[in-house]
């Protein structure tokens, strides 16, 4: 079974700070890591390959050349091959253009399954995984928390929903996005790290994947970010302090009535 894992390199912080003047992310002094949700996708891909006992796992990422470090990290935990999609034509892509670019690259590869993290911790859109499935016209299962059965023909997986677990049988090939409950990613091994350091990373350009440059990058993005801002901290508020709880409640109701909220 050949599995493709789409990963993204993100700044190592869940509290991304924004420069209020330029409305861009402040990346100074922030390390880059593999998007944490993607690490679960990588681990699951390696586990499926180990379980099936055949095939290979390939990680693929779109981004600038420095994304190579994220790909090498993936290679150190059991991934077989890595592909970097890097081209100026890819720059400025929104989730539509990003998923289209990845889907276009995926069409040039052989695979039985595509795995993604449920979302990236920087953008938090959760759109690229499903977008890839749509562009490839493949079935998609999002928020997968367990792979019960899997073969080249079909898979039975569990989806983690807010109100319970949904069990889905799906035809392959398919696209899954995974949640962190699916596994505990392994640490790299020394041999894995050494292999990753020496591994060759294949770089593909827009021309290599035969992408239409009008449909990708900034040009191919139907949405654009006009403004990013940190919402102002809420201020004010009034503490009602009385001796007893009934007194507090009585005064609270009074206030709410006064404000015509009750």
């Amino acid at each position: 079974m050949n599995i493709l894992v789409c990963i993204k390199q993100v700044p190592d912080t869940t509290e991304v700070r924004i420069n209020p003047e330029t409305n861009t992310l402040i990346r100074d002094g922030v390390d880059s890591i593999i998007n944490p949700f993607d690490t679960y996708a990588i681990e699951e891909a390696v586990r499926i390959r180990e379980r099936v006992g055949a095939g290979k796992v390939t990680v693929i990422s779109m981004g600038p050349p420095q994304v190579e470090s994220a790909l090498r990290e993936a290679l150190s935990v059991g991934v077989d091959e890595a592909i970097l999609l890097s081209d100026r034509a890819f720059a400025g892509a929104d989730t539509w253009a990003t998923s289209l670019t990845l889907a276009t690259a995926l069409k040039t590869l052989e695979f039985d399954l595509v795995l993604c993290g449920k979302q990236a911790i920087d953008g938090d859109t959760a759109q690229v995984g499903p977008g890839i499935a749509c562009h490839l016209d493949l079935p998609q299962v999002c928020y997968v928390s367990k792979v019960r059965e899997i073969s080249k023909e079909k898979a039975v997986v569990e989806r983690m929903m807010e109100d319970g677990t949904e069990v889905v049988e799906v035809q392959m090939p398919a696209v899954f996005t995974v949640v962190k409950d699916i596994n505990e990613p392994r640490l790299p091994s020394l041999k894995g790290k050494m292999k990753a350091k020496k591994a060759e990373i294949k770089t593909l350009s827009a021309a290599d994947i035969k992408a239409n440059v009008e449909e990708i990058g900034l040009k191919g993005s139907p949405t654009s970010v006009n403004k990013i801002f940190s919402p102002p901290r809420r201020s004010g508020g009034e503490m009602l302090e009385y001796e007893t709880a009934p007194e507090v409640a009585k005064n609270l109701v009074g206030k709410l009535k006064e404000m015509q909220l009750f």
Partner: peptide, 9 residues
């Protein structure tokens, strides 16, 4: 690599 891995563990 040994140092990095041991430190990570």
């Amino acid at each position: 690599m040994m140092v990095d891995l041991a430190a990570q563990i």
